[in-house]
């Protein structure tokens, strides 16, 4: 059976022990209403049926606390790195949001010894987690996890570099090593160029 279509403000179900609100819905006076125009999905989670509405077009996505985002560094200072948030999860944004990675949020261990220029460089593509928002015009980001950090970086000669350890990346052409806070990911589309990668 095809998923039913709904419009904003349409009453979907009663809100009780069986049915509960999910993404794209809201509760009002004991009933679940739709918040978006799209298709209705009923997902079973631990015996509770969660009603969700998925928009057919491009959905409005904004970074929230805990989201994993893909960002591009464009300015580094001794205290922080400024970056543009390009993707939220797997959703590519039309226009980027501004993010800020502070020195103390770069790595989980030995935070005081972390240096921005040894971890991130302008042009690097990083995976980061959104922290609780404290400022109006930029999102606080953190790379203090093994799975977070630099995923794509280019050497000074412009070649895409390959991670050789969690603190270094190497240029496959010139074999020059550069310090980075590397994310524990080996992208499928990057050729290691014969360099042995430490796991």
């Amino acid at each position: 059976m095809e998923n039913p279509i709904c419009l904003p403000g349409q009453r979907l179900s009663i809100c009780d022990n069986v049915y509960t609100c999910g993404q794209g819905t809201y509760q009002r006076q004991g009933y679940i209403y739709s918040m978006l125009a799209g298709t209705v999905d009923v997902v079973d989670r631990n015996g509770v049926k969660v009603i969700e509405v998925h928009s057919t077009g491009e959905q409005t996505v904004i970074p929230t606390q805990g989201d994993i985002v893909t960002a591009q560094v464009y300015i580094i200072t001794q205290q922080f790195a400024k970056c543009y948030i390009k993707c939220i999860g797997s959703t590519v944004l039309r226009s980027p949001y501004r993010g800020l990675i502070r020195r103390e949020n770069i790595r989980a261990t030995e935070k005081d010894k972390a240096e921005v220029f040894k971890s991130l460089r302008p042009g690097d593509i990083v995976l980061a987690r959104v922290l609780p928002i404290t400022e109006a015009h930029s999102y606080q980001l953190s790379t203090a996890e093994n799975e977070l950090g630099v995923v794509i970086a280019h050497s000074e000669h412009g070649y895409p570099m390959v991670p050789v350890s969690w603190t270094e990346m190497q240029c496959p052409k010139t074999l020059v090593k550069e310090p980075r806070k590397v994310a524990k990911i080996i992208p499928e589309n990057i050729d290691t160029g014969g360099i042995v990668v430490d796991s």
Binding site: L7, P8, G9, G24, Y26, Y33, M35, L36, A37, S55, G57, E58, Q59, T60
Partner: peptide, 11 residues
Amino acid sequence: LTLAGVPMYDQ
């Protein structure tokens, strides 16, 4: 607004 995917209470 509805077509832009902006969350709305009602039409």
